[in-house]
């Protein structure tokens, strides 16, 4: 398959998502180029989880479009949507492994559900995927027998099961100690480099961003406030980006004053 590394594999156009009266995503627009690691960065409540849910097709937006490989994913229904979702791997924050079946069966599950491959082929594919993520030989273990870092790796192996073209990671290093988290960052980069995978990573961890990002998209209050390389964002003069990168807390005094004004109506 010939691929142009500059062509966009995901195009998000003017995405708007509301929960009731509350606008969670407000005109979000960006492109993810084929083969890059695209990091969606933002604080709590910035809308990054909602954005991810829309990108993987777990939600539909109120307006706007998401094109995946040039096809309008947002308006797609039925078999077309299912076919396109097969090209997408999702690595959930809590790994989302099924605890009642072995690690190998977890990895094999998408293949058993969505393909007509023989069991013997699936068994070999499962071993290849587990070896790729550094978990060779653990296929018969139950998820409960794995450490947090191993569970993350198993989740990545399962996301890779169908040989996806795009893989999404939701807070991949959340809850891991810094050394194990750094190992996951190395693995994400390795998967991208070796398979030319397009990777979209939602995170708020700056150390992880430094390790993996080709492009960083900064969200605040449901809007894109900056997009570019990490170096470009570090030079940006947007106050929220500067505050986020400097890990400066919110100004409590200003917030207190605003609260008092709202309560009393006095300046």
């Amino acid at each position: 398959m010939m691929t142009d590394t500059h062509e966009p594999i995901i195009e998000v156009e003017n995405l708007v998502v509301r929960y009731g009266e509350h606008t969670v995503l407000d005109g979000v627009t960006f492109q993810v180029r084929r083969g890059e690691v695209f990091v969606i960065l933002g604080g709590s409540g910035s809308g990054k989880t909602t954005l991810l849910r829309n990108l993987v097709g777990l939600m539909r937006p109120d307006s706007g479009r998401i094109l995946i490989k040039g096809e309008d994913f947002t308006s797609m229904n039925g078999d077309d949507r299912i076919e396109l979702r097969k090209k997408i791997g999702m690595c959930f924050q809590g790994s989302a492994l099924l605890n009642s079946i072995s690690v190998g069966e977890n990895v094999a599950l998408p293949l058993r559900e969505h393909t007509k491959l023989e069991d013997s082929t699936i068994e070999i594919m499962t071993k290849i995927k587990l070896e790729l993520v550094g978990l060779g030989g653990v296929e018969d273990y139950l998820p409960s027998e794995l450490s947090g870092g191993m569970k993350k790796r198993a989740g990545i192996a399962r996301a890779m099961a169908m040989d996806p073209e795009i893989i999404f990671y939701d807070e991949p290093s959340a809850g891991l100690d810094p050394i194990v988290g750094a190992g996951i960052d190395v693995l994400i980069r390795k998967m991208q480099e070796t398979f030319q995978l397009s990777s979209v990573v939602v995170t708020h961890e700056m150390e992880s961003v430094k390790a993996i990002a080709d492009t960083v998209c900064m969200l605040q209050g449901g809007r894109v406030v900056g997009i570019g390389s990490l170096e470009e964002l570090e030079r940006a003069d947007h106050p929220y980006i500067q505050q986020f990168f400097a890990r400066r807390p919110y100004d409590e005094e200003a917030e207190d004053s605003a609260y008092a004004r709202a309560l009393t109506g006095l300046d």
């Binding site: 398959m1 393909t115 491959l117 013997s120 082929t121 699936i122 594919m125 290849i128 995927k129 040989d163």
Partner: peptide, 14 residues
């Protein structure tokens, strides 16, 4: 072969 995925490699192993 222009493209091969892990199912193709697994087939060769078989």
């Amino acid at each position: 072969v222009n493209y091969i995925d892990s199912s193709g490699i697994a087939t060769l192993v078989e």
